[in-house]
Amino acid sequence: MGKNNDELNRMRSYSSIFSSTYFKRLLKNNDYSFINDKIVHYDKNVVGKRINTYNDYIRFVYGELRKNYRNEYVYKNTFINELVLNKYGLSDTNVINEFRVGNSVADIVMFNGTSKAFEIKTELDSNKRLRGQLSDYRKIFKESYIITHENLAEKYLKEDDSVGVIVLRQTQRALKMIEIRKAKINNKICPNTVMQVVRTNEYKNIVKEYFGVLPEMNSFNMFSICEEMIERIPQKDLDKLFISELKKRKTNTSRIKIYQKELKQLGLAMNLNDVKYSKLLEVLNEPIKL
């Protein structure tokens, strides 16, 4: 990215601010140390001028990352602002941050009338694990997408022609996300993988919904009995039942639109309800005290 070492270190340091762990600590203990450390180290001279509150500083840092160091947080946040809200929509949709499938963790997954997995490959990332990740996602998701910078589009378009590609484009005023290739629909779903990714109540619901009744079982044999029954469900039906269960999972997807644009991904990752989000804004709007 053409940055000297000091500038690169500053950007890397900034990128650690948007951490769920730090923000949970801020909410619980009013612990501003993770923000204060950055201000003391890099930005004491701007405090009291255009930056007065912690929220001012968060917006400033996000703007710096957006221009100079587009890390995974910036990609996820732009994806939510640009595509989830403007293209896919929130009605009848469940968006889940970081979803484990096999040996992989999809960055964002989405369930509505279909199931989609999104794997982010920023300019800072390697693609060495990509084939394994896509192979895992195909076991349960109908559509898989790679999200990357437009300068890397050609590389990822050649990777796997069944995978959709979404690119991040830098305009003069903002970041945009554009889907340049739609994913091919995958109609296969692996029952064993379904059993690994769903919760106990979810796999029991799938069995009951399809067979009409739950068999007699106890805590020792429940998993194996349900797995054997789920293996007997036709793939098309299992796919619908799987999507239906994951759409019921409790998330804060419907609230995403009310979150401040820099904090949408953080709100999703922390699964903030309205009360906690109001508290977060309250503590961030405090004047900076060093």
Rank of each mutant, 00 (worst) to 15 (best):
S126V: 04
K67T: 13
L124G: 12
N103Q: 08
D107V: 08
F118H: 03
Y62S: 00
R70W: 09
G89E: 10
R100N: 10
K67Y: 07
F99Y: 04
M110V: 11
N103K: 05
R59S: 11
L124D: 07
G113V: 03
K128L: 12
N81F: 10
L83Y: 02
R100Q: 12
V84N: 05
N77A: 07
R66I: 06
V95T: 14
D92V: 01
T93S: 15
E82P: 03
N81V: 03
E123A: 02
N103M: 00
Y75D: 07
N86I: 08
R131A: 15
L83R: 09
N86G: 13
R100I: 05
N112I: 02
V74C: 03
S126Q: 06
Y69D: 11
Y62H: 08
I108T: 09
N94L: 01
Y88I: 12
I96F: 03
G63W: 08
L65Q: 10
R131Y: 15
I108F: 10
K128F: 13
D92W: 00
Y69V: 10
Y75W: 02
R129P: 08
V101N: 04
V61R: 01
S91V: 14
N71A: 11
V95M: 09
G113W: 00
Y75K: 01
I120H: 01
R70E: 14
A117S: 15
V101S: 03
Y73Q: 09
S115V: 06
T114S: 15
Y69A: 12
S91N: 13
N94H: 01
F60S: 13
E98M: 00
T78H: 08
A106M: 10
